[in-house]
């Protein structure tokens, strides 16, 4: 890859922005499905970071790409279990409002 083409910092900045947007959505969403979407956005930001490092810093033994594959696997499992928990919560509470899930509050 021609290193002079796109600097590594450009990829890192895009991934930082994506991660921070995900955190903002996680903190501010009231819909539980949107919270799950924000988590996926954050995981994608992390993946871009890993891929950029594996291509610019470790371009012979691309271990970052292997890590990205594992992150994608875990994200798929997390999405399946998270949405199942969400369905179960919706069945018990008949709402998806995050403010009403206060079972652990004492």
């Amino acid at each position: 890859m021609n290193i002079e083409s796109i600097p590594l910092q450009a990829f890192l900045i895009v991934s930082s922005i994506l991660f921070c947007i995900g955190i903002w959505g996680l903190l501010n969403s009231r819909n539980a499905v949107r919270v799950l979407m924000s988590i996926e956005l954050m995981l994608n930001g992390v993946n871009i970071n890993l891929m950029a490092f594996s291509s610019y810093i470790d371009n012979n033994l691309i271990q970052g790409q292997v890590f990205t594959i594992f992150v994608i696997t875990v994200a798929a499992a997390e999405a399946a279990v998270g949405l199942a928990i969400l369905l179960s919560l919706y069945r018990n509470r008949v709402t998806v409002d995050m403010e009403s899930f206060n079972l652990l509050k004492w």
Partner: peptide
């Protein structure tokens, strides 16, 4: 990516 992510949230 950035505009779409902002739209998502």
């Amino acid at each position: 990516i950035v505009v779409g992510a902002l739209g998502v949230i």
